[in-house]
Write a protein that binds this DNA or RNA. Structure first.
Lengths: 233, 233
DNA sequence: CGCCCATTTGAGCGGAATCAAGATCAGTGG
DNA sequence: CCACTGATCTTGATTCCGCTCAAATGGGCG
């Protein structure tokens, strides 16, 4: 019934303890809502409750919409991420696919209800929360105190950690987001993002190929330019 | 009258389920480390592990220290808050008292170990995490997309929600933080903070008395000026 | 009362936003 | 395979908001 490539199997592999009772496994499978998104498609939440979303394939952005055209991208998410989407009644956040994606959507309350008896799951959820919180705090530093150059360097390093492919002493990135989306994430305009990339390219620190291939030639130099000493995954 | 209840009792009252087994209660009490901080004193973590900190009394700021003099305040915390302090080996965050404060410090791993059998505690912890994450995301919006005026308005409203005393249709704030600290939280300089407060005072939207009393005369007007439609708790 | 330091106010500057063209890339259809 | 097309991205010129530097004011405490 369940193939290896199916979203729920990937979820179980990534998130659930291996010794989980079959009954609970089935229950979780029963409340999981599969959801396929085409690139740029918005995840539409059925109901108004808080959701837990596992990204089985593809990538997505969590967006806060403001008055007028203003949007702030709260974060990017990639395959394997397990994130909480606050209930839309309180915050106008939406999850939008960057490329074709497969999601698994849970009602947070249902999920926690089922997980109650399994401390392992709750603890994993707690760990995920901690990771998200750390990323968000890191973002506060970027947005609060860094200049354009430092933001760009921080962004590239962060992407390198999450989706970079190491090759010799360089790192190859295939960015699923546009310049505009990078800007909306970093609190910069598209023009500034473009200019900073040009500066880094001129300084031989990065190479760009096409619109979304970037090769980090000197990650350690990016590190220097990213400002601040604090650094971790 | 005994003026101050004991920190652990306050913690139990605020965080622990009322039907908690006595044994577990005692165990938690045993691993809790009491900690009194004078104003501006830094919380010094014994050991390098992740900590969970309950603020029994007073208030504190969570600070990220950067190269040189740069500091970003990640968040303010008040009595009743239960927060996670990442292990100092990975991020250089410190908790600093804004005024005299009483804390309860747990090793996160020990705490979770004990709480494993009590889903109620883990769930509460999870809820706290969710609140912290929401606040942090809200901060990303403020820092990423708002101008000085909107940041100031957002800050005042946020403080009103957390430590404001409602009086008729106005709200009284007693701010435990300095202008500099407000600036470091909002990604602004002390001068800009001061100027924005002056503008709001001139517009009759707020009154200030002394250095840290603020009265919000027209919260709804602040709301308008805070930008963005998203608003909650 | 008088000192010290936080805050306020003022003047000028600078970095990123905005406005405005061009250049380049990815499809599309001939 | 290549020309056409529209969107995305890059580059340039100018503007403006918030930072920096500097000075004045005022609150709080001895």
């Amino acid at each position: 019934m369940i193939e290896a490539t199916e979203p729920f199997a990937m979820f179980a592999e990534a998130i659930l303890p291996s010794d989980l009772p079959d009954a609970l496994y089935m229950h979780l499978g029963a409340i999981a809502e599969q959801c396929e998104l085409a690139a740029h498609e918005v995840q539409t939440h059925s109901g108004d409750a808080e959701k837990l979303i596992f990204i089985a394939q593809g990538s997505a952005k969590l967006v806060a919409k403001g008055a007028g055209e203003r949007e702030q991208i709260i974060g990017f998410h990639f395959a394997g991420d397990f994130l909480r989407l606050p209930c839309p009644c309180e915050h106008s956040y939406t999850l939008v696919a960057l490329e074709d994606a497969q999601l698994l959507v849970f009602s947070a309350s249902q999920f926690v209800e089922l997980a109650r008896g399994e401390p392992g799951i709750l603890q994993h959820l707690l760990d995920q929360s901690a990771t998200m919180l750390d990323r968000s705090r890191e973002k506060s530093i970027v947005l609060g105190r860094k200049n354009a150059c430092e933001r760009m360097a921080s962004f590239l390093l962060s992407m390198a950690r999450r989706i970079g492919e190491e090759q010799a002493d360089t790192i190859r990135l295939t960015l699923p987001m546009s310049r505009r989306e990078i800007g909306e994430s970093l609190g910069l305009t598209i023009e500034t993002v473009s200019r900073q990339l040009t500066l880094l390219r001129d300084a031989q620190i990065i190479e760009t190929h096409g619109r979304n291939q970037v090769i980090l030639r000197h990650p350690e130099e990016l590190q220097k330019r990213s400002g601040w000493l604090t650094r971790a995954n």
